[in-house]
Design a protein around this nucleic acid. Structure first.
Lengths: 344, 344
DNA sequence: GGCTACTGAGAAAACGCTTTCTCGACCGGT
DNA sequence: ACCGGTCGAGAAAGCGTTTTCTCAGTAGCC
């Protein structure tokens, strides 16, 4: 299986010392140039730049970290049940966005999972020891212990989604779930539907709570009493959407629209509707949430609510960098966008 | 600024020096204990352990890196077109698996994307400077420049999937695409089908090539001539599956089975089949590949081929660590598993 | 001309750790 | 007693940066 081929053992990369020697200046001067160079004459700067280029010098981040007391990297911390997030296309979009936003600042992204208690124990020292300069916290379920951990460790962090814990003054960036839900329900009502049901998300997640609240608000706004038989709660999974729809149909066969808090659940709901012979959107209009790939692939394609993931990731990174630079926590809520397809 | 400014000295985390003082030994002894401690008496070891625990000491990785000349982290390098991978559930599984396998070795995973030329230019110095100890390379399209880059940088790396470049002796871990495809086609033939078509993956990806080769092999094995009208090539996307199926049906309306090289394409194919009134599996049997979430959610649920992602990630990490420890490159091919559902 | 003020750049002190190197202590064998 | 050998542990030399601190040189200003 293994033939031992001597891998070309890389010769030591050049150090600041080599650059200094080549440029005929001291190490300190090279460092000053590296830092953007105040107190450096144009001649020196030029000589140093030339030497850097010629030797292919790259700063040694470990050495820099040691003296600056900064890690020079940021963690992307998944403290949610893994499957829920890793399987979620939104997660991928967010991860990609954060990676790229950080890359622009020359900050590598360190991926950390902390779903189980064992994992949390393992990473806690890592975080307290400030092996990263800050944390992008992907989690939202109520009472997440990481929020408290991070706060105590004095580590800057920004949550994705409004945290449901009791601690206030936590920095977070979120889509406007409530407004998004309201827009979607208004859209359903706008097409003349009057018996609008909902399949909400889990009530220990901010999205689940807010989207349901938005649903109720709009019904009230339109003078429609909320009929609790029209409300189901799922867990964002396909199966829970299908099951929820079945229960709704059993309790309220006359419903003519349903707002589902995730596309995956909505796709499940479509299956349940189809099985009972109902046509979408003719008999029942269906509105999803997320604009995930499954929405476009559904039968019929789902009308849904797009979350601004690009802006969310970008904003999270901006907020985190601001905190690392000493600013206080802040929260940002970004608007969602209605995507009209065939289902409503 | 002449007087002593009473700067609120942020309390530094404890260093090896503090531990040594507490334990009444020298710094060297503490370090020896940290390294697993040879040449340390039980008494000293105990004293040091107690001090570490009491002070909550955590090693400073930057300082360690500086002296050991090791980064103490590993990169997960996505050098594929981002969308193709970030949207892929397999990618998430792989990423999660690698993160956890590395965590067991106390190695943080650094996520890096290098899809565009600009990004590649940005990360090349990072890699050549050995800011990571090794790379898990997620890419496969032909002639990926990163393979050459990494080799030149003398950085250990393991590819996910067999690289198609000309350089040999590259370490890689892959699912047995060819055997998997063969098993699936055999399964289709086993249910009595005789006009088995295929929608292959892109022919610049190893999976695409191998799965198509497996298809051809099994047909030959059964004494069936390969009818080129039964072969379509897609790009793994839903849309390309739908379009491919349409073209197949136009060219060969009598086909009674189709082996599709990805579940997403297979789902698209189902839609195309449904539109022409064909029933699955009664009229046409459909076999997918990947066992992605969409497979279970499809109508009907897809029979598919599961890739052993857990074992793949685990094996990749093991191979990488071996290389970092000086061993030569090696390649491992892992078997796939048929998942029978309703579509075939 | 004698101050101060500023600029550019070298010398050197950290930063926290690993790893020699050295040395004393202790052991058994002659 | 003497001697090679082993073992435990302190002293100290770095690892490659950044950041003082210092100082020579040069203006600027009365």
């Amino acid at each position: 299986m293994t033939g031992t081929t001597p891998r070309p053992r890389a010769k030591r990369p050049p150090t600041i010392h080599d650059v200094a020697a080549h440029a005929g200046v001291s190490r300190g001067t090279v460092s000053r140039v590296l830092q953007g160079g105040h107190n450096v004459s144009p001649a020196s700067r030029e000589a140093v730049d030339a030497a850097i280029h010629k030797l292919g010098y790259v700063v040694n981040r470990a050495a820099r970290s040691l003296v600056t007391q900064r890690a020079g990297s940021v963690a992307f911390l998944l403290s949610e049940t893994q499957d829920r997030f890793f399987a979620d296309p939104n997660f991928s979009t967010l991860l990609r966005g954060c990676t790229q936003a950080l890359a622009a600042h020359d900050l590598p992204l360190v991926l950390i999972t902390a779903a189980t208690e064992a994992e949390r124990r393992r990473i806690t020292p890592f975080l307290s020891a400030h092996h990263v300069d800050g944390v992008l916290l992907i989690s939202s379920h109520r009472g997440n212990p990481m929020v408290e951990h991070l706060h105590r460790a004095g580590l800057p962090f920004v949550c994705c989604g409004k945290p449901l814990g009791r601690r206030r003054r936590v920095s977070y960036v979120a889509a406007d779930d409530r407004e998004g839900a309201k827009d979607m329900v208004r859209h359903l009502l706008g097409s003349g539907r009057r018996r609008v049901a909902t399949i909400a998300g889990p009530q220990d997640s901010p999205g689940g709570v807010e989207r349901l609240a938005g649903y109720r608000e709009v019904l009230a706004e339109h003078g429609l009493a909320v009929d609790e038989r029209l409300v189901e709660v799922g867990d964002y999974s396909w199966a829970s959407g299908e099951a929820g729809m079945q229960r709704l149909l059993a309790r309220a066969p006359d419903l003519d629209a349903v707002f589902v808090a995730s596309d995956l659940m909505a796709d499940g709901a479509l299956t349940a509707l189809e099985r009972t012979g109902r046509r979408v959107p003719a008999d029942v209009a269906v509105g999803g949430f997320d604009d995930s790939p499954v929405a476009a692939a559904a039968h019929p394609p789902l009308t849904t609510m797009r979350q601004p993931w690009d802006r969310i990731s970008e904003t999270m990174v901006r907020q985190l960098l601001a905190q690392i630079d000493g600013e206080g926590p802040a929260s940002v809520i970004l608007p969602t966008e209605l995507v009209v397809r065939d289902s409503a």
